[in-house]
Design a protein around this nucleic acid. Sequence first.
DNA 1: GCGATCCTGCGTAGTACTACGCAACGGGAC
DNA 2: GTCCCGTTGCGTAGTACTACGCAGGATCGC
Lengths: 224, 224
Amino acid sequence: MSSYSEPYRPARVLLVDDHTLVRDGMRMHLALQPSLTVVGEADDGEAALAWLARRQPDALPDLLITDIGMRGMGGIALADALHQRHPEIAVLMLSMHDNLEYVRQAMRAGARGYVLKDAPADELLAAIDAVLAGRVFYSARIARRMIEEGPASHPLDALTPRERDILNGIGRGLANKEIAASLGVSVRTVETHRLNLKRKLGIEGRAGLVKYAVEQLGGDAAGG
Amino acid sequence: MSSYSEPYRPARVLLVDDHTLVRDGMRMHLALQPSLTVVGEADDGEAALAWLARRQPDALPDLLITDIGMRGMGGIALADALHQRHPEIAVLMLSMHDNLEYVRQAMRAGARGYVLKDAPADELLAAIDAVLAGRVFYSARIARRMIEEGPASHPLDALTPRERDILNGIGRGLANKEIAASLGVSVRTVETHRLNLKRKLGIEGRAGLVKYAVEQLGGDAAGG
DNA sequence: GCGATCCTGCGTAGTACTACGCAACGGGAC
DNA sequence: GTCCCGTTGCGTAGTACTACGCAGGATCGC
């Protein structure tokens, strides 16, 4: 990995996961690496940000390893917030989903790596090495699927921001009227977006769109 | 089967989870307990059953700790299969969901304990002690919710078989007309069931019912 | 047998969503 | 500037779903 001219210092790591057992497993693996020190843990995004705010600026971690799906503030929002405040801190995303849309969201939010929780144990260490060296790392299964599906074939990528807003509302079980109110637009506008969504996503029937939206959201926000 | 006049022997444990990190975390905790020995691991239900089939009958584990949600054969099916073949082996279910319906299914399948993955670490050990002693253990949050909601108050339990059929169709994104066709009844009948479903489940709005149905069906693969 | 429950189906009214087409406005790209 | 695109919104028609109430037939337990 990287060669320091300064005296050798282990890379500082902050672990963020709401599952105690996962944190334990990571801590155990990382403790075996002399080049790494776990300096803190948190069980959700807000706790992680609070931890970082309390931390001395010269003792911030070099790497944040976070779960993607947590109660409260999830890994994507955390990566986003961290990337704006401390872009120098590497972010490695942990996930149980091989859903490529999550991967893209994570990378857009500033994550440099994406590792699946059921991946072989040494993949985690390889990923840490890579992101600390400034490289990008994907779990083998993710990389394979990216090659298979193509880097931008997912229909969600074709959606405009506003269409995502509407899809989000649909996935939360809201009626058009409620979505319109929450976005401050007319019901007709929501209907237009909805029609466009169905065309873009190739969905027929009204229930189908709700199903699709719930499945897209259901994984990280409502799941647990 | 085993009489405890024989010399002291640590309890044998089989770990089943598709997440390497979770297995690592568990193994680490259990290694600190002299009264326990991890004798095997598997990453899904079928692998666990295959492992058990290869095992000498006099060296079977005393306890199986399994994740509830795994690719392929999940924890509930595994508990069910194991409970029929080896009812003497205690089963402790691990889950990220505090959904009481999962808890009930697990217990019906023969599990003796249900621990959440984000529970404090000592809860796992307490749960192991309990189920090895023949007692039943629930994570604190599960126990609290059971008290709050009542032991059998889950609305899904109140549904009739036909209502489940309709809910299933809704969750697959079908329209009333399609559900009616697939069940061989009239649209009006489906509408009646649908109205009853919303009353029983306390749901308002049409999208809300679809959302609920999708979450009930798709919940096995979801999670953080 | 009798009551309870479930499944089935209809009538009626009102509300929500679909499926077009059309168009004005603003922001970027070229 | 001009063009493209995203966002916003309306008109019109048709379809789907909601929300009651009512009721016959089947099944099961007592």
